[in-house]
Design a binder for these strands. Structure first.
Lengths: 222, 222
DNA sequence: AGACGGATGTGACAATGTCACAGTCAAACG
DNA sequence: CGTTTGACTGTGACATTGTCACATCCGTCT
């Protein structure tokens, strides 16, 4: 395991701390769809994403979801260890959007190091600030952007991530990403189809006119 | 100045660090309405609220506002020093909602201490986690609560804070707190008036039926 | 081929936001 | 003491998004 590549504070740890860290760290494979963390009660510890893609999201009491942000290779998932961070009073869920390989660090080990080392604590700070930034960005989107624009942006992002114009996903899934309702997404996609931006099939959305999609993602402020 | 009362990490600082901190700290008085911080460019440093009440909010390009959270006595305003926190990529504004007295800590001094002391860094962490929690709470409100419920809750909170049932504020101001539009708030207040929950006047909202107000704040999930 | 279940389509209506403009009140001024 | 001015509030029409209740469709498994 080459933890040091992922952790900028590595060099500032003592040899003993490095050993403790390395000794506690485990590799974990997760299949696509696995729920890695759900709510405050389970406290699996930090994840470092070695490969694959995670989705961090919230679920309301009624079961409505919205994606807060995603994590990719080299990203670190802080909130799967939210129990060790005092001050956090909200629940997130984390799932594997693709098959993924993770390094897992037990919460207690990380917590200890954070208390001992200013470098680790400051790193954790930066990490939290990044996630905070992601959520603030989302808040802006929700408050000030139209849904058609957000939908277009989402489709463009998926296209980018998957490297294909043929997206295999249901309208319901998209609604859960955007925090909207299936019917609304369905209508909007149908509208996109009329505009020749996409072509629709069961469980399939093909981007036909990428330029127009990006245009839609950009325009239409509320 | 009794900074130590406000700062749980105080006892973990060396005498020299304590001196540096105390020497750099200044008292600052701010009149109601003063904008203490706006955007990433100005970096005044941390505030500790000695008395009064601050409002932390965002403004969109079009000028729409929404209140993220408020700070009261003994609270610490982190984002007025957002420049020293790497990882933060969003802009907030902070204003004094009442006349206020603050302790002000220069960004560089705090940054230095954060790098040196794990206690300071961990404290900063907790602080950020708290603010993050506030924003997550707000996100939940926006996504899953009806506006009438949020409005009722806001009026109840104001009543509580000011210790009076006679609120002096404009519909526009309320809209800015809730991230809504003036017309919508006006209509909703008028509805509240019909329901004998409030009584309205120019620049004045009197809570008539507190029980009903609280009821409205509680019920009506989306 | 038929049945089943997940996925999508649709209409009606509710909630909120937007726009344009009208009315109204209170402080300030002459 | 009346008028004026600007801020505040009211209102209708319409756009956007969410909700609900069903209908329909498509692919897979018998």
């Amino acid at each position: 395991m080459k933890a040091e590549e992922y952790l900028p504070f590595w060099k500032k740890l003592t040899r003993e701390q490095q050993n403790r860290f390395a000794y506690a760290m485990r590799e974990r494979k997760a299949q696509k769809g696995t729920i890695l963390h759900n709510g405050a009660e389970d406290c699996v510890g930090l994840f470092i994403v070695q490969s694959g893609q995670l989705r961090v999201y919230t679920i309301s009491e009624e079961g409505k979801e919205i994606t807060l942000y995603r994590l990719f290779e080299r990203d670190i998932c802080l909130f799967s260890a939210s129990c060790i961070m005092s001050g956090i009073e909200f629940d997130l869920a984390v799932s594997a959007e693709t098959d993924a390989v993770l390094y897992q660090i037990p919460p207690k080990v990380y917590q200890e190091l954070m208390r001992e080392s200013a470098a680790v604590a400051n790193f954790t700070n930066e990490l939290m600030a990044s996630r905070f930034s992601n959520v603030m960005w989302l808040l802006d989107q929700i408050l000030y952007k139209r849904l058609d624009s957000r939908l277009a942006a989402f489709l463009a992002e998926e296209m980018e991530l998957l490297g294909t114009k043929e997206l295999k996903m249901t309208h319901e899934t998209i609604a859960q990403h955007l925090g909207s309702a299936r019917e609304v997404i369905s209508r909007m996609l149908k509208y996109f189809q009329n505009e020749q931006i996409v072509e629709l099939g069961r469980n399939r959305i093909s981007i036909v006119d990428e330029a127009k999609l990006l245009e839609t993602a950009r325009e239409s402020l509320r």
